[in-house]
Nucleic acid binder design. Structure first.
Lengths: 369, 369
DNA sequence: CCTGTTGCCGAAACCGGTTTCGTAACTGAC
DNA sequence: GTCAGTTACGAAACCGGTTTCGGCAACAGG
């Protein structure tokens, strides 16, 4: 494939310190140094500390590739982004990657990134990375209720951690944000404002998190004694447009909600469009609380009250869990969750009108005020 | 560091085909097979094709890590994202990464991704990746007029390609979108609508592309015989807020522009906010044309007329250029540019008023219509 | 004092490749 | 027919690590 011609003269790069150099400096063999550094039991404690000190002093860091050809482990984790859902993870991607890579580099690991349209190609991409020893394990974001990636990796016995929980937890490690708790807290907050008819706009039902968030919302209703009214629930709103449509649909009900909880910020932004069209003031005529914490939420007027997810922290935790998993820790011991934190904007407050009055307003032509 | 305990039983993973297996199947030595596959001249043509056919048949692919310890090349390129400018490349990141990784995997290369807050830490991150042979070369996005990353990599003699051009082209390969052409075309389009006073809102002046785009804008003015009026130019607007402020500032001039060209979509979105506050209709009272092609531009009303940059293509081209550069091609032969393509929205059109009338409108309190 | 463990390390094989070197077998010239 | 020069491949060293194996020395037990 490549030509045999040396591209240029001797490229010095930078003199790396090799294990043999460390061994020579100590009068030991490289085998002994290797065992000392890797915690083999047949090394005397005194030798071990001598070796560690010398390695430290000389700035020795093993070459991951050389280790890999013997051990099969390359000290790299894989992340395959799905590209056929444009904009799905867009606002968080940068933070998420930052979290992952910072955690990895702290342990001298690296991230091998790839992309795939999804579907079958996603699986071949994963296989290729495993085959070529480019990744010792994977972070799987956006887990589906039934996830083909999980099946494949399990079958190949390749470690992975999920960003998100899953129905069948067998052998799975994960990190997740407790979206259901946030939804419940949103209901409680709205109930505290005095709302009694609260709507819900969920995200895509193919995602596992949607099921959880809807459960949290319903639990919130229950704990305040509100009935579960199917006419106050809309689903599969992942974009601003879909969110706007869902809001208009909810407000067209005979008994419209005075407040709406959104599972996804992008959809909640659509409420501003719908409100403008309908002549409603967000935060007064209609209260909304959402979830994600995308930056745009801070720029709309009034700012969106939303539960913020720390994607950077999520990435960091996932990376650490995966390293431990690759190191052999049992998946059951590698399950963490965190809470989303509320960022209060101005999009929620006491209802200016009861549901009936709101319905009357909506049936009348919008006023200028 | 890691324990010596095998984490679990013999992990089969997947049986890789090694070069020795190919050699055995042919009755040759692995050295001969290696030379045959790598194009050494001391291999007879008949043997070469036999080896290639057999390797193909057995599905042999060399293990990059094993190659790397001898050759120093790992068939991986590096990309270090800067994280201290939140949201800077956010909308494009996913596409950009997709372009890079698809191009790479077509050639069996991989992407090693890292992040850095920028500054000195950026440089140590680059050094670490080079030291540990995690990247044979780098894509440098968002090049600055004076770029410390370039200096470092040049000094270490590590190949790189720029996303963006640079003042001192010595030894640099690059890919770039001709933003200056887009700016000139924007002026021409507005002039065609009948505008004669055209403002400009530029991005951050620390970036090289800002200089180019401003040059393009000015060239556009020149070619239509419009004077260069410093009072119609604002700079360093990279966000929606900054864009809104710039617009309000421009419109407060005695002779306000009836149209504004933006170097960055994010700033152009701020024009909608400013227009709403001032009671102006975008596309009629005030025309705007921008650059980037972020998705949000399609969702505002009226949709933003903007020059769209194909980030995915950019990523793909950069990856291919970098591979060729690492392969030894001269940087001068690795310079490509492409045009941004206009996406017509409704944000520009013939001016509803002349500058003087606009100024009067703005000094009067905004009307409801 | 001899034997049997045990602790600790060196020697060497090994991982999957690349590259150098040496040489047997051709080739062509004289 | 001899000899120098190619051609084309094998053999082996090498890259930077890990891991197995064997053995020496020290120590304990009888």
């Amino acid at each position: 494939m490549a030509s045999q011609i040396r591209t240029d003269g001797a490229r010095p790069l930078r003199a790396r310190v090799t294990i043999s150099q460390v061994a020579d400096a100590l009068g030991l063999t490289k085998g002994t140094v290797s065992r000392a550094l890797n915690g083999y039991p047949d090394i005397s404690p005194s030798t071990r500390v001598r070796v560690q000190a010398q390695a430290q002093r000389m700035g020795y860091r093993p070459l991951a590739q050389a280790q890999a050809i013997r051990t099969g482990r390359s000290r790299a984790i894989g992340l395959v982004l799905q590209t056929d859902v444009p904009g799905a993870q867009r606002p968080f991607l940068s933070d998420f990657l930052a979290g992952i890579t910072r955690a990895l580099s702290a342990e001298s690991w690296t991230l091998t990134l790839s992309t795939s349209p999804g579907g079958a190609e996603m699986l071949t991409t994963l296989e290729r990375l495993v085959d070529e020893r480019k990744a010792d394990g994977f972070i799987l974001p956006r887990t589906f209720a039934q996830d083909a990636r999980m099946r494949l990796l399990r079958e190949m016995d390749v470690p992975f951690v999920l960003y998100g929980r899953v129905e069948d937890p067998d052998g799975c490690a994960w990190f997740d944000i407790l979206g259901e708790d946030a939804m419940r807290a949103a209901v409680a907050r709205l109930a505290g404002h005095g709302h009694t008819r609260i709507g819900f706009v969920n995200g895509g039902t193919e995602y596992n998190f949607s099921r959880l968030r809807e459960g949290g919302f319903l639990a919130g209703l229950d704990s305040h004694g509100f009935p579960q009214d199917p006419t106050l629930i809309r689903r599969n709103a992942m974009t601003r447009q879909a969110g706007a449509a869902a809001v208009e649909s909810l407000l067209a009900e005979p008994g419209p909600p005075t407040a709406i909880v959104f599972a996804v910020d992008a959809a909640a932004l659509g409420a501003y469009d719908a409100a403008q069209r309908l002549g409603l003031r967000i935060g007064r005529d209609l209260s909304i609380i959402s979830y994600d914490g995308i930056p745009e939420g801070g720029f709309v007027d009034p700012p969106l009250t939303t539960f913020h997810v720390d994607s950077r922290m999520a990435g960091a935790r996932l990376a650490e869990l995966l390293i431990r998993r690759i190191g052999g820790a049992a998946p059951e011991t590698l399950r963490e969750t965190a809470e989303a934190d509320l960022r209060v904007g101005g999009s929620d407050g006491p209802p200016a009108h009861r549901s009936e009055a709101l319905a009357r307003m909506l049936s009348a032509p919008p006023t200028t005020d």
